[in-house]
């Protein structure tokens, strides 16, 4: 957008039989098993699944923030062995710095990366205007609503124009209406209208919400819990650009239902293999620990 940031190559993610085992006081806990997935450049892929299926962990493994215990991870053809430096991360909480203005929060990555803020000020303003925060650049986070704070944190993730965006339930804490609006807004920021292979970023998006995954994604990866593994992958062939009307379409309903069934099935297959997963099918999940 501005000349200040250099062009970077587009990312693609390759995961081959990735596994993750935590060592805990009660013995090893397998969080992820045999995750194999390829994400094309410019593709929008969502990971859906119940809590505890390891989808957030998988996101951090891709970012190089946590080491996997087995398997191979590559981004842009290069193995991930340390935190990736040219990615954007958005978390469930906006995690803005309370003492900084919105503008200075968005400029944080440039400072942390040692690039200086001078060359990025204009881009930060441009991003903030794009998400409707143009009049709020001088405000502090507590003066903003939750949705506005999350918009600011998305701008922060986009500042250095990373080719890969990793988003961990970014809209999970927002009310349903704001969330629906943010979905469409994210697609606009992503550059949905530009078409694949254009300037689009690769996005790996974690969510609980099936409708959210369907409206956003090119593909939805359905994960099952304990250990987290891929139960199904659904291609979302809904036409783009997607709008509020897309949600009302028959195809949207069909795809949502298919993913819903895949999720249930994932839990089911998991339940037959691992006794601890029975809780996810039963009506009283709170008692799960007592059965173990």
């Amino acid at each position: 957008m501005t000349a200040a940031h250099q062009h970077r190559g587009e990312a693609s993610i390759g995961l081959i039989r990735v596994g993750m085992v935590y060592r805990t006081a009660g013995g090893p806990v397998e969080a992820l098993r045999d995750i194999s997935l390829d994400v094309r450049r410019g593709e929008f892929v969502s990971l859906v699944g119940p809590s505890g299926c390891g989808k957030s962990t998988l996101l951090r493994i891709v970012a190089g923030l946590r080491p996997a215990t087995s398997g191979a991870i590559s981004v842009d053809g290069r193995p991930v062995i340390e935190p990736l430096s040219n990615i954007g991360m958005v978390f469930q909480a906006p995690v803005l710095l309370k003492w900084r203005t919105v503008l200075d929060n968005v400029l944080l990555p440039a400072e942390l990366a040692g690039l200086g803020t001078a060359g990025y000020r204009e881009r930060a303003m441009e991003l903030l205007r794009l998400v409707g925060l143009g009049d709020f650049v001088g405000k502090r986070p507590h003066e903003l609503s939750g949705g506005m704070q999350q918009r600011a944190s998305i701008c922060r993730a986009l500042l250095l124009d990373p080719p890969l965006l990793l988003m961990d339930e970014p809209f999970g804490a927002l009310d349903a209406m704001t969330r629906d609006d943010m979905n469409i807004e994210l697609l606009r920021i992503w550059g949905e209208d530009k078409g694949a292979g254009g300037a689009r970023k690769t996005i790996l998006f974690v969510t609980h919400s099936i409708p959210e995954a369907v409206i956003l994604s090119d593909r939805v990866v359905v994960m099952s819990p304990r250990p987290g593994s891929i139960a199904a992958v659904a291609a979302i062939d809904l036409p783009r650009p997607r709008t509020v009307e897309t949600r009302a379409s028959e195809d949207f309903g069909r795809l949502s239902l298919a993913i819903h069934r895949a999720l249930k099935l994932g839990e089911g297959s998991c339940a037959s293999a691992h006794r601890s997963c029975v809780a996810n099918l039963g009506a009283r999940p709170m008692t799960a620990n007592r059965w173990d």
Partner: peptide, 13 residues
């Protein structure tokens, strides 16, 4: 917040 520290790690700060 751990997320904030992750942000620092991502940018190699």
């Amino acid at each position: 917040e751990e997320d904030l520290l992750d942000l620092g790690r991502v940018f190699n700060a």
